Simulated scan of single mutants.
Amino acid sequence: MMGRVLSSDLLKIRRKGLWLLAVSGPFGIVALQALNFGIRYDYLTKKYADDLWGGLIENIALLVPVTVLAGVTLISSLIANVEHQTSSWKQLLALPVPRTAVFAAKFLLSVILLGVSCALLAWGTAALGVALGFGWDFPAVKILKISFLPFLASLPFLALLLWMSLTVRNQAAPVAIGLLAAVCSLFAGQLPEFVPLAWPLLAAGPPSGLRLAVGGGVLLGALILLVGAVHFERRDVD
């Protein structure tokens, strides 16, 4: 049943710019680092002479948390706006489909879009390193880690912002909260490890905080998703 709802949602987002948004995030990160290494190639290759791939991955990892949180914010809001702008909630919820399936399908659609972004970032990182002359022996595990794990650590924000976006017609509050979190993530290194805002950065960094960041992100995200689904099931949506 949820599969049919998801198929319907995929059709609804055609020509809504969501796929373009999913592509623009990783493209922006890779383009910025291409410019960075292109302008300062001699300096950076000398600085990271012992591990050229490690230097590239380190520079890309710094941009991933803020980009992921901004992407989570915009994608969750735009998915909700597909229903808000057409005032189709009453028609949608009148169908013989559980509200929880509707809510879960929206979440799964968000995960698909952001998962595509993560995959494109991994591909773009490898392609950039090869283009810069770092060789074909790229560290695939490290590239996949910085591409996907910050997103898993950001699942609490996705669940929360999607919940807010679906239940509130005015998107100003969820978008403001999400973008503020994205900006604050630039300084997340100063936060204690148990603060969720620090988790995307921890997930992209050293292994020491990896288990807490990813495990905490998945568990807290599942909890918020469950609470949001229960609330969505009981609440009237305009």
Rank of each mutant, 00 (worst) to 15 (best):
M1L: 11
M2T: 09
L6Y: 07
D9F: 13
D9V: 12
L10H: 06
K12P: 00
I13G: 08
R14A: 10
R15Q: 14
G17Y: 10
W19S: 04
W19K: 02
L20E: 00
A22Y: 00
A22H: 05
S24F: 10
F27A: 15
I29L: 12
A31G: 03
Q33H: 09
Q33R: 10
N36G: 06
G38H: 09
Y41F: 15
D42A: 15
Y43S: 14
L44N: 09
K46N: 12
Y48M: 04
Y48Q: 01
W53I: 06
G55I: 05
G55N: 04
L56G: 04
I57L: 13
E58P: 01
L62P: 02
V64H: 00
V66L: 08
T67R: 04
V68S: 01
L69E: 08
L69W: 12
L69S: 08
A70W: 09
G71V: 08
S77Y: 04
A80I: 04
A80V: 02
N81S: 14
Q85N: 15
K90T: 13
Q91N: 12
Q91L: 14
L95N: 07
V97E: 00
V97L: 04
R99P: 02
R99L: 11
T100P: 03
F103K: 01
A104E: 12
A105P: 08
A105S: 15
K106P: 03
F107K: 02
V111I: 14
V111Q: 01
V111D: 05
I112L: 15
I112F: 11
L114H: 02
L114C: 02
G115E: 04
V116C: 10
A119R: 07
A119I: 05
L120R: 06
A122M: 12
W123R: 09
W123G: 13
T125N: 02
T125M: 00
A126F: 03
A127K: 10
A127Y: 03
G129L: 07
G129F: 05
V130M: 13
G135N: 10
D137W: 05
F138I: 00
P139A: 11
V141K: 10
V141A: 14
I146T: 00
S147V: 05
F148D: 04
L149T: 13
P150Y: 08
F151Q: 03
L152V: 06
A153Y: 04
S154W: 03
F157K: 09
A159M: 08
L162V: 11
M164D: 05
L166S: 05
N170S: 13
N170M: 04
Q171L: 08
Q171F: 10
A172E: 05
A182E: 09
L186N: 08
A188S: 15
G189A: 11
P192M: 13
F194Q: 07
V195P: 01
P196E: 01
A198T: 03
L201P: 01
G205N: 09
P206D: 14
R211V: 15
L212S: 06
A213P: 07
G217V: 11
V218I: 15
V218A: 14
L219G: 01
L219F: 11
L219A: 15
L220K: 06
L220Y: 03
G221D: 03
A222P: 05
A222C: 11
L225C: 10
G228P: 03
V230S: 07
H231S: 13
E233P: 05
R234A: 13
D236W: 07
D238E: 14
